[in-house]
């Protein structure tokens, strides 16, 4: 039953090593976090400031951009159509893509967690928070990829969406108004949760906003799928 999903998953792993645009999405923020945590020390700066900030940005950017780009590329080049014509079901394809990007992003999150000084239970909590955020971004990215006919179209939609979700957590740190507005974005809530991963104190607001964002993304994906289909 999982034969097609596994085959596509493995194909995608091989492709990642040759696809610089996607590869850079997975490694850019983790590498930047490690470098900046090691090289920049400013007095009164909160501990692991860069790692926490980049973690929230990573959640809002990498999964969203990657899945939208991969789906849009497959649609544009008609490889997705070939898969569908060969008996691959849409859910098998989406599951393979979702798992692949989710796992690669979690690997990046692990590096961010190490850079952020998380260990043991705290690291597990950090990864769970990241996993939830990555899932929400995947749903938004899948909706964009499905709605797009080409990579260019996907990029033109992805860039503003990604900028909003990835930069809101950072901007919210410096401005109260933005902070209030940003509360409705899952990436801000993920950022807030990451900041207190050591205590793991989850509020109703955190869960509600993340779930509401996921639901909205799911609805968006449903509409895009109904309108454009995968192939």
């Amino acid at each position: 039953m999982m034969r097609n999903t596994t085959a596509i998953f493995q194909k995608q792993i091989k492709d990642t090593l040759k696809n610089k645009e996607i590869l850079i999405q997975f490694i850019m923020f983790p590498v930047m976090a490690v470098i900046m945590e090691k090289s920049i020390k400013i007095e009164d700066m909160p501990a692991h400031f860069f790692a926490d900030m980049f973690s929230a940005m990573y959640v809002g950017m990498a999964p969203l951009v990657s899945i939208a780009a991969v789906i849009a590329e497959e649609k544009e080049k008609n490889t997705l159509r070939v898969l569908m014509m060969s008996g691959v079901k849409p859910w098998e394809y989406l599951l393979a893509m979702g798992c692949y990007i989710w796992l690669f992003c979690l690997a990046g999150a692990l590096v961010l967690g190490i850079a952020g000084g998380h260990e043991g239970r705290e690291m597990i909590i950090f990864l769970l928070i990241m996993a939830a955020g990555i899932l929400a971004s995947l749903l938004i990215g899948a909706a964009i990829g499905t709605a797009s006919r080409s990579q260019m179209m996907a990029t033109s939609i992805t860039v503003p969406v990604m900028l909003v979700f990835s930069f809101l957590p950072m901007l919210a740190e410096f401005n109260d108004t933005i902070s209030n507005v940003a509360r409705i974005a899952y990436s801000r809530q993920i950022g807030l949760l990451i900041g207190k991963a050591g205590d793991f104190c989850v509020s109703f607001e955190n869960i509600f906003v993340i779930c509401a964002n996921m639901l909205a993304a799911l609805l968006l994906f449903g509409c895009a799928y109904k309108k454009s289909g995968l192939a």
């Binding site: 596994t6 194909k11 497959e74 080049k77």
Partner: peptide, 22 residues
């Protein structure tokens, strides 16, 4: 207009479909 995976090798392109076709 049926696409191929440009970055993959000829073998990998076919290998994927051997698994899909069983």
């Amino acid at each position: 207009n049926f696409g191929l995976y440009e970055r993959l090798t000829c073998y990998d392109n076919l290998k994927l479909f051997t698994r899909i076709y069983g």
